[in-house]
Simulated assay, not measured.
Amino acid sequence: MKKTFKLTHPKIKYARLVDTVRRDVKRYLKRERSKELPEGFDIWDFDCKFGPSAEAAEVISVAEIGTAINTAEERQLESFYIEILARASHRTGKA
């Protein structure tokens, strides 16, 4: 998913647009995690970027997506860019 979300609409309130973005991201992650893994891999990992535009996007983890959306909401941004790319990976043991 590489997408710029617009948070302005003449009839839909800002908070509802932000909720829609959260739902879309959550649905995308669930859909990607349910796909069958290639042989030899045991988990889906995600490479994520977030920012006000594609050029200014910074690398974040999947766990930080919600916080990044909250920050964009607090700043009342009119749009932001999010990139989530799934890749097959191996589990790492706890240290």
Rank of each mutant, 00 (worst) to 15 (best):
K3G: 11
K2T: 15
A54K: 07
G93S: 06
P10R: 05
A72Y: 03
T4K: 12
R23Q: 04
D47R: 07
L37V: 01
I69S: 03
K2N: 15
E58T: 02
Y28A: 05
A63W: 02
K49E: 14
K3W: 00
E36D: 08
L17R: 13
K26A: 14
L85T: 15
I60V: 14
T92Q: 00
G40R: 06
V59Q: 08
K3T: 09
R27Q: 13
K35E: 08
F5K: 06
F50N: 01
T4N: 06
F5C: 13
K30A: 14
K3P: 03
H9L: 05
K35M: 06
V18S: 13
S89H: 02
I82P: 01
K2L: 09
Q76A: 09
R33W: 01
D19Y: 03
A56Q: 10
T20I: 00
L7E: 12
K94G: 10
K94C: 06
H9N: 15
L7K: 08
D42W: 08
V21F: 08
C48H: 12
Y81L: 05
E74Y: 04
V21L: 11
Y14R: 01
Q76L: 08
T92E: 06
V21H: 12
K13I: 14
A15E: 11
A72F: 05
D19M: 12
R23H: 11
D19K: 09
T71K: 14
R22F: 12
F5T: 04
E73D: 14
E36F: 02
E58L: 05
F46Y: 12
Q76E: 04
E83Q: 15
E74I: 02
K35P: 03
K13V: 13
S34V: 02
M1A: 13
R75I: 08
E55A: 13
A63Q: 04
I43L: 13
T71R: 13
D42Q: 07
K11I: 11
T71E: 14
S53M: 07
L37K: 03
H90N: 11
R27D: 12
N70V: 05
S79K: 11
R31I: 15
K6L: 05
D19S: 12
F5W: 11
V59G: 02
E73C: 14
R27W: 10
